[in-house]
């Protein structure tokens, strides 16, 4: 579903991704683990289409289509979704207005009619209830005054409503207590299945107790240095990243 080939990316002259190659199959949950500064968040932003990165080489394909020249919105309409590590606060924009704009923009891009307001409200309410998101939260401006956990639940709400084919979870577990982590993980697991894939970026194995990965990749110095099954995450939890940091330096 997602194929990244030989990706080289710099920010302000500093190389962050150095020939990264990665393939995530249809229906697969792939985890990327790695130490701080290995380029994990950069990878998620570049795949989502953020403009301030300098891509020197490489391709990213979603369902076989090269997305390198596509805007973030076009990528979203193709079914790409990014759960932000630090979701943005947008004062003055009501959450419901934002959700409706997003859902309708994607429907429009796919040639579907706008969602009738009643249907929209119904969907949001039902999905919000599953994620313990109160009506009061929905009335506030986007993420404004939300706790870290509330912000992450809002991300999962958006994901559930937009039903993306490919989701990137950028350190979804950061800032979450164990209950919020469970709630978010349940939201992700509910979407798992044929035709949907996930790239789960994390420092810690803990998240993978709640979202079981099919494959685990280790990232260091801007590339994938090792791949394996879920047992690789457990090994990392025990031994740390020292081996990979040194290996990359050599």
């Amino acid at each position: 579903m997602l194929e990244i080939d030989n990706l080289h990316v710099s920010v302000a002259g500093r190389k962050i991704l150095d020939g990264l190659t990665l393939k995530v199959e249809d229906g697969q949950v792939a985890a990327i683990m790695g130490p701080n500064g290995s380029g994990k968040s950069t990878l998620s932003y570049v795949v989502a289409g953020r403009a301030d990165y300098e891509v020197q080489d490489g391709t990213i394909r979603l369902d076989g289509v090269d997305i390198m020249e596509k805007s973030p919105a076009e990528r979203a309409a193709m079914g790409l979704f990014l759960v932000f590590q630090y979701p943005l606060e947008i004062p003055g924009v009501a959450t419901m207005t934002f959700l409706k704009a997003a859902m309708n923009a994607q429907r429009k891009a796919r040639g579907a009619a706008e969602l009738p307001t009643i249907e929209f409200m119904k969907q949001v309410r039902a999905t919000a209830a599953k994620l313990n998101i109160s009506q009061d939260m929905l009335k506030r401006p986007v993420n404004v005054g939300f706790s870290g956990g509330e912000k992450k639940r809002m991300e999962i709400l958006q994901m559930a409503l937009l039903e993306p084919r490919f989701s990137i979870l950028d350190e979804m577990d950061s800032g979450l207590d164990i209950d919020a982590l469970k709630t978010c993980a349940e939201g992700v697991n509910a979407l798992r299945g044929e035709g949907r894939s996930f790239l789960v970026i994390t420092h810690y194995q803990r998240l993978l107790n709640f979202i079981t990965a099919d494959v685990v990749h280790v990232m260091s110095r801007g590339r994938i240095v090792k791949s394996g099954g879920p047992e690789l995450a457990l090994a990392l939890e025990a031994s740390g990243y020292a081996e990979y940091a040194e290996g990359a330096a050599a």
């Binding site: 919105a73 979203a76 932000f84 704009a101 923009a105």
Partner: peptide
């Protein structure tokens, strides 16, 4: 960027902000 990753085209996102 946040709005755009949700599928809102750039021009629309500007208008919202």
């Amino acid at each position: 960027f946040y709005l755009e990753t949700r599928g809102v085209p750039h021009i629309e996102a500007e208008k919202i902000l």
